[in-house]
């Protein structure tokens, strides 16, 4: 940067900052002002300006830039604040230099523009990169979390396993479901698998197709699938769409499905004792003895 401009900017830095703050005050932060205190805005703005001027003095300091952007991201300030702030800052700087040097030459004008751009743009780019990296990180973390949640497989007792499905099923997830289902069946040696679709909001042809495929695959590896949690509206859609689910048993609730599964594995639910009656019997007997 031309040292002459640099000196001007440094000399008038206070004035620039003041103008910029006023400008920001007027336009940019109105929407966020209600949620953030004035002091905080003031403080962050000052830090921002100091950062920009420190670059002018001693070159870029990536560490402090990183720290600053991290702080802003954590505060949840919108990216627009940074970009708009940088734009108005740039125009104020250019104006100040032009006011101080009386020269209407076109080449001179362009030179000032270039210089200021070279100064301000790298900072802006760096900040935007930081922002988008941060977003990407969040998205990938959430993706992993979602995947972990998406295909639970619960072995409830010997030979019986339940897979509760919650949320919309797309092709990727259907694939994941099928893989997990088959591996889980082999691992837990389940004779019966209950697929619970209570939490699946919409069952269209595609979802039904995926479920049927999964059930068929389960049959091929030598286990049986029961589809449970069929709500009335789902039953209606399935019939209206002409989807054939007759190849494997379906039940309205997990409870009924579980009973069916017990039946298929030759088991039954038995009450251990009729406790109350027993206790009364004992009491009657003891009274008789006396």
């Amino acid at each position: 940067m031309n040292p002459e401009y640099k000196d001007i900017l440094l000399d008038y830095s206070d004035e620039i900052i003041k103008k910029w703050m006023d400008d920001l005050e007027d336009n940019k932060l109105k929407e966020y002002k209600s949620t953030v205190s004035n002091e905080l805005i003031e403080q962050v703005n000052r830090e921002f300006v100091n950062l920009i001027f420190s670059k002018l003095k001693d070159g870029v300091n990536y560490e402090s830039l990183e720290q600053f952007s991290e702080r802003i991201v954590n505060l949840g300030w919108p990216l627009a604040y940074l970009t708009e702030g940088m734009q108005s800052f740039r125009s104020i700087c250019i104006r100040t230099i032009l006011e101080q040097i009386d020269n209407k030459d076109e080449a001179f004008f362009l030179e000032v523009m270039d210089d200021v751009n070279n100064w301000v743009d790298p900072i802006k780019n760096q900040l935007i990169n930081e922002y988008s990296n941060n977003w990407n990180n969040i998205i990938s973390l959430q993706k992993v979390a979602l995947q972990e949640l998406s295909v639970p497989l619960i072995p409830v007792m010997e030979g019986i396993t339940v897979m509760p499905l919650v949320g919309t099923i797309d092709t990727d997830r259907a694939k994941l479901i099928m893989e997990n289902l088959l591996d889980g069946v082999i691992k837990s040696r389940a004779e019966v698998v209950l697929i619970d679709i209570t939490g699946v909001p919409v069952v269209d042809t595609m979802v039904a197709h995926h479920i049927v495929q999964a059930a068929e695959a389960v049959r091929l590896i030598g286990s049986t699938c029961i589809l449970v949690g069929i709500r009335p509206e789902i039953a209606q859609t399935i019939v209206n769409l002409g989807i054939d689910l007759s190849r494997f048993p379906t039940k309205s609730s997990l409870k009924k499905g579980f009973e069916k599964a017990l039946e298929m594995t030759n088991r039954d639910i038995v009450n251990v004792k009729e406790k109350d009656a027993d206790i009364i019997d004992d009491m009657v007997q003891s009274i008789d003895k006396e």
Binding site: A217, L220, I221
Partner: peptide, 18 residues
């Protein structure tokens, strides 16, 4: 038929062989 592997079962279903 016993012991069909998950991967095998998935390929068969994908091929439309039920």
């Amino acid at each position: 038929l016993t012991g069909i592997q998950p991967a095998v079962s998935m390929t068969l279903i994908d091929l439309g062989i039920h």
